[in-house]
């Protein structure tokens, strides 16, 4: 089956600066949750914004990004806007900041529908209430008119998810969707994303720096470092047989598996280009033999 998201040799450069993303290729199949991990500045959010067409005007994007076989690179802003919120959607780290504080939550969900479907106000409202119920807002009809600050952080992220998925897009990009939430709420939001992808067959690109999140829901994982995609593996393989030395360092630095009282290993600050090349070559050799 052809992948829902097919990124080939994508590169992003801001102004005249160094490449923020270099030669990244990855494919995500329908219904899959693909995790993209890496430290801050590794380029994972830049890839997400490139797919959505939300890069700033100074950014230069090359390579190919296909959504359901359709090329997105080179599309006009208005052509991309028609696809955003309809065929592809994105949610962000801070749900409180993602919602307009002066609009009722229900209207913000209905707005996504009305931006893409010729439905009446009442119809959009009814759909929005149904969506609120689906993402777990109790008493949705009564809470439709409430403004965001009357909801908890976890509830707000549920509303953001409902607004993003209102038109049942094929692809959901979740950029650190649980980072701003506490651990129990984190798990609930991840379960919600997982349930929605199973119910609707949504493909999910989950961007995170948290390997615990990856282990909970991702089918496959890509590891990014300094704008490059170092390795792609199934979640199980990544945790049990990491191919790339950087991935091993990243796994070793995960506090979840640490022994109390011992120091956490530190990822070397600078991986020189040579060591990265050598490590990549070693990974490729192992892949060829394995």
């Amino acid at each position: 089956m052809s992948p829902v998201l097919d990124i080939a040799q994508a590169g992003v450069r801001f102004g005249t600066g160094p490449a923020a993303v270099k030669d990244v290729s990855l494919r995500v199949a329908q219904g899959e949750i693909f995790g993209l991990v890496g430290e801050s500045g590794s380029g994972k959010s830049t890839i997400a914004n490139a797919v959505m067409g939300l890069l700033p005007a100074t950014a230069r994007l090359d390579g190919s990004i296909r959504l359901n076989g359709e090329e997105l690179v080179g599309l006009s802003e208005s052509a991309l806007r028609v696809r955003r919120g309809d065929e592809m959607a994105m949610i962000f780290q801070d749900a409180s900041a993602s919602l307009d504080p002066t609009w009722s939550v229900g209207d913000q969900i209905a707005e996504t529908i009305r931006a893409h479907r010729p439905v009446s106000r009442a119809e959009a409202r009814a759909r929005a209430i149904a969506l609120m119920g689906e993402v777990g807002i109790a008493d949705a009809a009564r809470r439709y008119r409430d403004v965001p600050h009357r909801f908890s952080g976890g509830m707000r992220q549920r509303i953001v998810i409902a607004a993003a998925l209102a038109n049942h897009p094929k692809l959901l990009i979740a950029d650190e969707p649980t980072t701003a939430l506490d651990v129990t709420i984190q798990a609930q939001i991840l379960e919600l994303i997982d349930r929605l992808r199973r119910d609707h067959g949504t493909t999910v690109l989950l961007i995170t720096h948290d390997l615990g999140v990856v282990g909970q829901v991702c089918d496959r994982v890509g590891v990014m470092y300094r704008g490059e995609l170092l390795e792609v593996a199934t979640t199980e393989d990544l945790f049990t047989r990491p191919a790339h030395p950087y991935t091993r360092a990243l796994l070793a630095a995960n506090p979840a598996g640490a022994v109390r009282g011992s120091r956490l290993p530190v990822i070397p600050q600078e991986w020189s280009t040579e060591s990265l090349d050598a490590a990549n070559a070693a990974r490729d050799r192992r892949a060829a033999h394995g």
Binding site: G85, F92, A97, E111, A115, A164
Partner: peptide, 16 residues
């Protein structure tokens, strides 16, 4: 504000 980015991600028109 970040919510404007989310509005763009929803496909809301610049005018709106």
């Amino acid at each position: 504000q970040p919510f404007v980015t989310f509005l763009r991600a929803k496909g809301v028109s610049p005018r709106r």
